[in-house]
Structure formats: structure tokens, C-alpha cells
């Protein structure tokens, strides 16, 4: 029997694309639309650090090409910003004044760089490596720049530091214990990481904080609370990610940091699901909601979401999916356990 469902997926990352692929494989007749504010088809976001430093070409980043969407009859809307959702009428309002009607909505909008409250006054000076659109703006500057100031850390940040090192750039890192938000690095972890990085020529600052950043003659002067002053070409902030869900606020969805979903990825609003790093998933073991990071987690969540959209009742697994080796410290990404638990290190 033909289906007349219109699955609208907000987000073009691994969760959204995996959900779309699974839906298409199992529902040939449905209309499937992916909406993304980025102007590039599905790409491998973890490769951005290598792309921005010139180690990868844009073609190396692409996971899916535009024709592959057309072949699978998936409507891909790129560079389109969602303003709000109306769950009553089942409409997604796009910034360019177009209304998209859905029967089932999947929010897989991912996450964006977290800017610490104390840094918001200097937000215009900070650069992040979270999206292709962002890095396109400063990719060329990186080649020309010599001195980099990085504060925070996190997984992407450490990868970036490594890439800068290989390019012979000078890097200063002000390490924050909570750069892995929502996780916090222990003192022991920080010490290990700092020691390993110093060996590779990175100047490490621990136990200090940013006081001011002043933009001066195409450069930046970073002043710390303890009085250190550094003139650099570019300043980067790597303090973890926060779910990108502003457009969903006020529409009736339960939102904490991310969109709250149950174990089947369903929100409190009928026919709306959320998955990937924009979602906070309920864990009955701890009776709370946790967010997840990482590509493999997003892939699994996208698939589980699609299964449940098609009428299944699949519960998301509670096991971690990948270990990161961070300068000698092994970190398991998980949406269930706290990073400080021994099993995660």
C-alpha cells in the first residue's frame, strides 16, 4: 500500500542521513526531505580539522553526492534555515518564507560550538571548527597565520593542535578542565594531556583564564587573569558542543540542553523525534537524560529513529560506541555514563 508520509529531517549529519536512508529503504513511496543550514551535502565532520589545515580536499570530506539524493528520491534542501516549528499544524517554517509540511519530523540538527558565558563579549574574535560553513570563512587565513591561541581543548581542538604542529605553527593552549562539556577532565587527565602536548612544542597554560581579547591590526592580543599577554594571529575556542535547538524552543517540545527524547527517540510531541547530538536521551538506569557525541552514536540513533518512525519499538542501546585516544588519555564516548567513571577512561 502506498505511503503518503512526508518525513522531514532537520539536519544533514550522520543521524539525519542514516535515518533518511533507512526510511527510504523501507518506505519507497514516502516523501523524504532533509533540511540543512549548511551549503554542502552530507560530509564527514571529523575531517574538518584536516580540511581546514589543507590536508584534505573538500571532495574528500563528502560522504554523499547531490546526485545520490536525487537517485534515492530524497529532497535535499541545503543552505536553508529553520525558523520555527508548529507541531499543531505540522509545519516547519523556513527563514526564506517557505512552509514545509510534514507528517513525521526528525530533529537531527546536531550541535554547535559552546561559547563560555565569560567569553561571550569576545565571541567575534573566536573561531570554531564545527561546521563547513564556519571553516570556509577562515580556511585561507590559517595558511598565512603563524601564532595560534587556543583555549579549552576538547576532541576537535586536540586534533587541530596536532595538525597545526605538523604545519610548523606556534600554538599556545589554555586548557580548561571542562572543555569536554558535558564531561569534566580530572586533574590527573589534565596533567597527562598537558605533559604529552608540551613534548610536541605546544605552550600550555593551566589554572588561568582569559581576561580580555583585543583585536589589533589583523591580530589579537590575549590577556589572561594572571597577567599573561600574548599577541597571536588567530584565536580558537574548543569548549565542547551544545545542542543546536534554538529553533525548536517555544513550540511545545521539552528541551533541557537538548531535545528530550525517550529510549525510542520520541519527543513529548507526537510524530516528532530527535536523534544525534541535539537530543538528550532518557536513561532509566540513572533516571535522567544524557547527551551523546560522536559519529557512530549518531549513526545508530538515526537508524533507531527511522525504525520507530516506521512503527517499530526499538530501544536505543546503552553501550558506548567509541574510544578516543586523547594525548595518552583514553576517553569513551557515551551518553549514559559519566566521564569520571573509571570504565570510561
Amino acid at each position: 500500500m502506498p505511503s503518503y508520509d512526508h518525513y522531514v529531517i532537520l539536519g544533514n549529519g550522520p543521524a539525519g542521513n542514516n535515518a533518511a536512508s533507512f526510511l527510504r529503504e523501507n518506505d519507497k513511496d514516502a516523501k523524504i526531505t532533509i533540511i540543512s543550514d549548511e551549503n554542502i551535502p552530507f560530509y564527514y565532520k571529523p575531517g574538518l580539522t584536516r580540511y581546514v589545515t589543507g590536508d584534505l580536499a573538500v571532495s574528500d570530506l563528502l560522504v554523499e553526492s547531490l546526485p545520490s539524493y536525487r537517485e534515492r528520491n530524497i529532497r535535499l534542501r541545503l543552505g536553508q534555515i529553520v525558523d520555527k516549528i508548529d507541531p499543531e499544524q505540522k509545519i516547519v517554517f523556513l527563514r526564506h518564507k517557505e512552509n514545509v509540511h510534514y507528517t513525521k519530523l526528525v530533529i537531527a540538527s546536531g550541535s554547535r560550538a559552546r561559547v563560555l558565558p565569560s567569553m561571550r563579549g569576545y565571541a567575534q574574535c573566536l573561531k570554531h571548527i564545527t561546521t563547513y560553513n564556519e571553516v570556509m570563512e577562515f580556511k585561507d587565513q590559517i595558511q598565512a597565520a603563524n601564532d595560534f591561541f587556543i583555549f579549552g581543548g576538547d576532541l576537535v581542538g586536540f586534533k587541530f593542535i596536532k595538525m597545526l604542529g605538523s604545519m610548523g605553527k606556534k600554538v599556545t593552549l589554555l586548557i580548561y578542565p571542562n572543555a569536554f562539556w558535558p564531561f569534566t577532565l580530572t586533574h590527573e587527565m589534565q596533567t597527562t594531556i598537558a605533559s604529552n602536548l608540551e613534548k610536541s612544542g605546544v605552550e600550555i597554560i593551566v589554572g588561568d583564564d582569559i581576561h580580555r581579547i583585543i583585536e589589533k591590526e589583523n591580530a589579537y592580543v590575549v590577556k589572561t587573569v594572571k597577567g599573561m599577554e600574548k599577541k597571536v594571529d588567530m584565536v580558537f575556542s574548543f569548549n565542547g558542543m551544545i545542542p543546536s535547538v534554538d529553533f525548536a524552543k517555544g513550540c511545545g517540545l521539552d528541551i533541557d540542553r537538548g531535545i528530550l527524547v525517550n529510549e525510542t527517540m520520541q519527543t513529548n510531541v507526537p510524530d516528532i523525534y530527535a536523534c544525534g547530538s541535539c537530543a538528550q536521551i532518557y536513561n532509566p538506569d540513572i533516571n535522567s537524560y544524557t547527551t551523546s557525541i560522536g559519529w557512530p552514536n549518531a549513526v545508530v540513533q538515526g537508524e533507531v529513529t527511522a525504525m520507530n518512525l516506521l512503527g517499530d519499538h526499538k530501544v536505543i542501546e546503552s553501550a558506548g560506541r567509541k574510544y578516543f585516544d586523547l594525548e595518552g588519555v583514553k576517553i569513551k564516548t557515551t551518553w549514559w555514563e559519566d566521564i569520571e567513571e573509571s570504565s570510561s577512561i
Binding site: 551549503n39 554542502i40 551535502p41 547531490l66 534542501r77 541545503l78 543552505g79 536553508q80 517554517f93 523556513l94 526564506h96 518564507k97 517557505e98 512552509n99 514545509v100 509540511h101
Partner: peptide, 19 residues
């Protein structure tokens, strides 16, 4: 960028623009 009323689905030219 500011039409008199919002476009119905698939009726906006911007909605079909490729990268």
C-alpha cells in the same frame, strides 16, 4: 527575501538552490 506572504512548500525558488 520578504514576499508578501510565505511560499507554500516547494514554491520558493530558494528552496531549490544547489550548493
Amino acid at each position: 527575501s520578504q514576499p508578501a506572504r510565505p511560499h507554500e512548500e516547494d514554491k520558493s525558488v530558494l528552496g531549490w538552490v544547489d550548493p
